[in-house]
Simulated scan of single mutants.
Amino acid sequence: MTHQVRAVVARGKGAPVSLETIIVPDPGPGEALVNIEACGVCHTDLHYREGGINDDFPFLLGHEAAGRVAAVGEGVTEVAPGDFVILNWRAVCGQCRACLRGRPWYCFNTHNAKQKMTLADGTELSPALGIGAFAEKTLVAAGQCTKVDERASAAVAGLLGCGVMAGIGAAINTGEVGRGDSVAVIGCGGVGDAAIAGSRLAGAAKIIAVDIDDRKLATAKRIGATHTVNSRETDPVEAVRELTGGFGADVVIEAVGRPETYEQAFYARDLAGTVVLVGVPTPQMKLELPLLDVFGRGGALKSSWYGDCLPSRDFPMLIDLHLQGRLDLDAFVTETIALDDVEKAFERMHHGDVLRSVVIL
Results as ranks from 00 to 15, higher is better:
194 A>P: 06
196 I>H: 06
217 L>A: 05
208 I>L: 14
215 R>L: 02
180 G>I: 11
216 K>I: 04
144 Q>G: 07
178 G>Q: 10
174 T>E: 08
157 A>W: 12
234 T>N: 08
160 L>C: 13
177 V>I: 11
182 S>V: 09
145 C>Q: 04
148 V>K: 11
225 A>S: 09
161 G>F: 05
173 N>E: 03
215 R>A: 01
184 A>H: 07
198 G>L: 04
142 A>T: 03
210 V>Y: 07
215 R>T: 00
231 S>E: 02
215 R>E: 00
229 V>I: 14
227 H>W: 11
176 E>Q: 13
162 C>D: 04
147 K>G: 01
209 A>P: 15
147 K>A: 00
199 S>W: 08
231 S>M: 15
161 G>Q: 05
188 C>I: 06
186 I>Y: 11
204 A>S: 00
227 H>C: 11
171 A>W: 10
155 A>R: 03
232 R>F: 05
163 G>S: 14
144 Q>T: 08
194 A>T: 04
235 D>F: 13
231 S>W: 12
206 K>Y: 13
221 K>T: 15
207 I>Q: 11
148 V>N: 09
205 A>I: 00
191 V>K: 07
182 S>L: 14
163 G>V: 10
214 D>V: 15
182 S>H: 08
143 G>Q: 00
225 A>Y: 13
224 G>N: 13
223 I>L: 13
166 A>Q: 01
202 A>Y: 07
195 A>F: 09
208 I>D: 01
212 I>K: 15
199 S>G: 00
